[in-house]
Amino acid sequence: SLLLVAEPEGIFAMPDPTVPESDIKALTTLCDLADRELVVNIGWAKHIPGFPSLSLADQMSLLQSGWMEILILRVVFRSLALEDKLVYAEDYIMDEEQSKLAGLLDLNNAILQLAKKYKTMGLEKEEFVVLKAIALANSDSMQIEDSEAVQRLQDVLHGALHDHEATHHPEDPRRAGKLIMTLPLLRQTAARAVQHFCSIKQDGRVPMHKLFLELLEAKA
């Protein structure tokens, strides 16, 4: 219940209508959107029960490892109602053609593969919010100071997922496990996305805001 309440509203991409469509414009829009979403997601993390009790250093380490997984999971959940399209924002939906134009066809196809899994399972909002918190708590940072505290956080969230499934899906005792088994594809896709945006950063043609840059650098 606390995670459902903590879930942030969607934000708008607001692409500049005066700039003609191009790969640079699309990537600039996405990087700006990601930067603003990251601010929102850091605020969200503070509402995960148990997260604020971690040391500041461990909170930072988990976010530095897991931020892209959180961004992608949010895009995926927003996209579940659509077919072969990714809802980066309510006003910024990418289809195959736009993905091609932005040079994001491979990455967006990987994200769509994840969306397809959740669509098949009928992922619910309750499951989505817990899974997202689990992705953060389980982001496997190498810098954790108090791994027992992080383990306790994982156990609480894992417990919440099991409780939800026991009450809402008693017909499928393996549902929680099935959801957990989607996390490797999320990890793999996030790594791809980080790699892609790191190379865009190296090119230097797309302006990026400071928080997005800071977190990309934490992954480099």
Partner: peptide
Amino acid sequence: KEKHKILHRLLQNST
């Protein structure tokens, strides 16, 4: 830590 000053600041903010 100096390298991650925005994340640090956002986490410290009470809101």
